[in-house]
Simulated assay, not measured.
Amino acid sequence: MTPYEWFKFVVMMPMFLFRCFLTILFMPFVFVVLRICLLGTTINEPIVGWRKAFIRPFLMYWAHVLLHIGFNIWPSLTGYENISKAYEWRATMVFNHVSYTDGIMLGAYFLPCGLAKATVADIPFFGSFTKACSFLFVERRGSSDEAKTVHASRARTTELIHRRAADPRFPLFAIAPEGTCKQEDVLLKFSSGAFVGGRPVVPVLLKYRSKYFHQAWGRVENSFWHFMRQQTQFINHADIEVLPPYMPSPEEREDPRLYAENVRRLMAKKLGAQLSPQGLKDQQLLKQHGICVDWTGRRLKMKGSSAAKDAGIVPKH
């Protein structure tokens, strides 16, 4: 937090409050329209007819409004011509997960479908949005989610994902193989779920351009403070680049981990990002031991005991 950052924080606060006011005005309208359009539909079934013709452009328009007015993010897009080839090949969209705004950017430009636990469908507004995007709702075994949503799919998640990705009645299926957000200029290990079965993928690269403030949503001490800093920037620039669909080799079809790693290396090269030896499990350990970056963004902080150091998660010195 330099003096310049404090200056922006104070000067942009009235504009942030004004954007909040506008967002609160239009969100109920979007919610009501979606609820009406979704009457008579069933989750995990394709949206067809007039509903499909209306909902997709309607949602993409309002996602743009939310992106620009609600979050003050103005992306540039390159490689959009590769999306038509991705639909032709029924390629799975894989993207690097940087921030909590990634999904809004993808929705504004592509409106893909994704994966959610069954109970998400019942969340006010957000549930209607995910249903309108044709999300795949799955039942999380052994949890309180079981049997709460009668139409939730109960087969193996990987099998369901590939069945949905190959079905031309649905939008492209989007997955963040890293499984979590992290520092922007690295790529965590990819899980192999999107690569099992040897289907083609279309890599989508997300990069937030900022000189002073880091948009990346990693292990931060105060999430609300990070959100407020993002909201009080003069403008937030981002780049979206769609690479050509990636058709796996015979060796990659036989080895999903090799396939995932080769796609990760390709994306890292294009992004200019480092390859991290860590993955989602390592990030979960950081959370478990209360390890995060302090509110200034300069220091590593541990809440609680020194168990993390003893476990070798962070250096002792």
Rank of each mutant, 00 (worst) to 15 (best):
G79Y: 08
P277W: 03
K316I: 00
A147Y: 10
T92K: 09
E139G: 07
F190P: 06
F16M: 12
L280Q: 13
C113K: 08
L17V: 06
D102G: 07
H214S: 12
L275C: 01
Q278L: 12
L266S: 07
D145G: 05
K316R: 05
S84G: 03
P248Y: 02
T158W: 04
F29S: 01
V201L: 06
V202M: 14
M12F: 06
A118Q: 11
G279V: 01
G107Y: 05
T157I: 14
R265P: 04
L136H: 07
V220D: 06
R219D: 10
D145I: 02
V196C: 08
A63H: 15
F173I: 04
V242S: 10
R51W: 04
K52T: 00
G193W: 01
F170T: 03
M12G: 02
A311K: 12
D255W: 12
E221L: 10
M247G: 01
I161Q: 14
R156D: 15
L187K: 09
K270H: 14
T180C: 08
L115I: 14
K8T: 13
F31W: 13
S210K: 02
Q230D: 14
L271D: 06
R209H: 10
E81H: 13
I43T: 08
S192H: 08
R51D: 03
A86P: 01
V98A: 00
Y212D: 12
A108G: 07
Y87V: 03
M13H: 12
I291N: 04
G40P: 03
L285I: 05
G49I: 01
L67G: 02
F29Q: 00
R229H: 04
K85M: 09
R265K: 15
W50D: 02
G79R: 08
R299G: 03
T296K: 11
I55V: 13
I36K: 07
L275A: 00
T157C: 07
T41S: 14
K117C: 09
V314S: 10
P245H: 05
F54S: 01
L77W: 15
T2K: 04
T158S: 09
G49A: 05
S249Q: 10
L266Q: 12
V33Y: 00
